Amino acid sequence: MDRSAVEASPWRAGMRVPEPEVTVYTPGRAPLLRVLWEGTQPVYSVIARQDLADGCTAYQVEVSTASG
């Protein structure tokens, strides 16, 4: 099973699928998500969770790709 992250398509008004259920987390009270990035696994706070009509779940995190 491939567990690679994929970018979720944004939902827009007028789409023929139901609007996702969105949970926005308060900074400091958000769940954490480990992300595999260039051989490391840093942990990031989840900004929002989107439960999509097709059963998929999308997590929004802010990932810093800067080194050093």
Rank of each mutant, 00 (worst) to 15 (best):
A8F: 00
A53T: 08
R29T: 11
A58N: 06
P31R: 08
G39H: 08
Y44F: 11
A8H: 01
V63S: 05
L36G: 12
Q41R: 15
D54F: 07
M15Y: 02
R49I: 01
L52D: 08
E7F: 03
T26S: 09
E7Q: 14
M1I: 13
V46C: 07
A13R: 06
A48F: 04
V6P: 00
R16W: 10
V35A: 11
Q41M: 12
L52Y: 09
R12W: 09
L52I: 00
A53R: 02
V6F: 06
S64I: 12
V17M: 05
V6E: 12
T40I: 13
G68M: 06
V43F: 01
S45Y: 08
G68P: 11
L33S: 04
A8N: 03
C56F: 10
E7M: 10
V63T: 05
V17T: 14
R16Q: 11
T26Y: 05
P42R: 09
T40V: 15
R3M: 07
S67E: 15
A58R: 00
P10T: 01
G55A: 09
R16G: 12
Y59G: 00
S67H: 14
P27S: 02
S67F: 15
A30P: 02
V35M: 05
V22R: 01
V6T: 14
P18H: 03
P42I: 08
